[in-house]
Amino acid sequence: MNFKELARKLETICAINITPFYDDTKDINWDALEENIQFLLKNGTEVIVPNGNTGEFYTLTLEEAKKETRRVIELVNGKATVVAGVGYSAETAIELGRDAQEAGADCVMIHQPIQPYVTTRGAISYFKRIIEALDIPSIIYFKDPNLSDDVIKELAPLEKFIGVKYAINDLPRFRKVVSEVPDEHHLAWICGTAEKWAPFFWNAGAQGFTSGIVNINPDLSFAMLRGLREGDSRTVWKAWEDSVGFEDLRAKYNNGNNVVVIKEAMEMIGLNAGVTREPVDPLNEGDRKAVTEILKSWSLFNVGQTL
């Protein structure tokens, strides 16, 4: 496997697919998952990330997480790069990662450790242990501002460490770590906070960004990507203006709305997303109205019936 080539494939939109649940049982609706993946593929998505936070990874059992990764790999069938989310304890992450690589995943994304007590040296050991235990390469999800960027710098020489989903919205800090990691390590730098922050991270050294909006309005997401690649600032800022209200809505309640806004927007336009699992509630009436107005501004009502 050419790890450098795979790192370059991540320099695009990393689509975080949803995990649809039935309204009554909250079991996974596998048919709706297939619809979601096919929607992403039909709209040109090149990287799909099952078991991301938009996929409600932390609400899934380990068996559900394994099954979702395997199902996504089967559905993608080589048409896109599959980056499987793994996490929890190091042993659990390795178990999930080995299952993903056996199923044919291209790469894993190691979630930020969720333990309440984490040190920088401990985080380095955590990520390194997982990276070295797998045959396929890893990217890390870096979002705790209390951890030093030394985590990234010390891991950078590892051959199977190929990218960072950087989700700390501190642009001087991000630029500094990008400049301090030698180019010879060929890391893919990915803005981990979606369209709202993508233009800023791009100018600071990112080459791609994550997206939840791509599950609803891929034209908007890809317009931003094209604009960034071509240096077309008018297109970039038009896409930013169209997306920022939606992303602000997702960020409400300390990001508590992050997934439910995506799912309820999908349902409103005829895409089968289902409900969220606890600890996330449905949107309140005010937020639902705000989603409706945004979808109207995007001219997306009834799009689900024409796919």
Rank of each mutant, 00 (worst) to 15 (best):
F57H: 03
G55K: 13
E11F: 08
L41G: 11
L75V: 09
T61K: 11
T59W: 10
K79A: 02
T92E: 15
N77Q: 10
V86H: 12
I13L: 08
V86D: 04
T69A: 09
E5Q: 15
P20F: 01
E63D: 15
T12G: 06
Y22E: 15
E91T: 10
N17Q: 09
K42H: 10
L10W: 05
E95T: 10
I37Q: 00
A90P: 00
T61W: 09
D27K: 11
L41W: 09
Y22M: 14
R70V: 07
V82Q: 07
T81L: 06
V82E: 06
I94N: 05
N53Y: 15
K9M: 04
D31K: 12
R71C: 02
F21P: 04
G52D: 06
I28Q: 01
D24P: 11
E95G: 04
I28R: 02
L33N: 03
L60C: 06
I48L: 08
K26A: 07
T61Y: 08
Q38V: 01
L96C: 02
G44H: 07
G87L: 13
T81K: 06
V86F: 13
V76D: 02
T12E: 06
G87C: 12
Q38D: 10
S89R: 06
A15W: 00
I94Q: 10
E34R: 11
D23L: 07
L75D: 00
A32L: 13
C14T: 14
F39A: 10
L33S: 03
G78I: 01
T45L: 00
K79C: 01
L33H: 02
G97I: 05
A84W: 14
L96Q: 13
W30M: 07
T19E: 04
L60M: 11
E74I: 11
D23I: 06
T81V: 15
K9Y: 00
A84L: 14
D23Y: 11
L40E: 04
V47I: 07
N36Q: 13
Y88L: 14
